Computed example of a mutant assay.
Amino acid sequence: MKRYLQVIAHYYAKAGNGDTVAARLAELAAATRTEPKNRYYGYFRSVEEPEHFVILEQYSDADGLAEHREMPHFQRIGVGTIVPLLERREVSSYMVEEGEA
């Protein structure tokens, strides 16, 4: 059975920074979707808490996430632009067997 890495991230923007984080996430998503080991990258903004974002990522293997974190676009947009706008972030990852829900 084939496996992949599922990443679930919660980003909490500092007050007033939600729109900027959303715009930068759009850039990061577009670039990440071109990575060879990326299977999916989607992000969602809370209706109740507009400074809260949930990011769902899938990589063909655990190395895919490590490689993503080293990509120039992640370093520039994610680390350089988004992270300074956050109050906090929580990231967890899980190995998933293909076919599991």
Rank of each mutant, 00 (worst) to 15 (best):
L86E: 05
F74W: 02
Y43C: 08
Y59N: 13
Q6P: 14
T20W: 03
T32G: 11
V96I: 15
V21C: 11
S92A: 10
E67P: 02
R39Q: 13
L65C: 11
V21R: 03
V21Y: 00
L56P: 15
Y59G: 07
A23E: 12
A15P: 11
I55N: 08
M71F: 03
V79R: 03
Q75P: 06
E87R: 05
G16P: 15
M1A: 07
G16Q: 07
E57Y: 02
L85K: 02
E90R: 04
S46T: 11
R89G: 01
A22R: 15
A15T: 10
I55P: 01
V79Q: 06
R24I: 11
K37P: 02
T34R: 05
T20I: 08
R88V: 01
R69L: 09
S93A: 09
G78N: 03
T34W: 00
Q58R: 08
E67A: 10
V7G: 07
F44K: 14
L56E: 15
R88E: 06
H10I: 13
E27K: 04
H52W: 05
L25W: 00
S46E: 06
K37C: 05
A9Q: 11
V79Y: 01
L28I: 03
V96G: 06
A23T: 14
E97Y: 06
H52M: 09
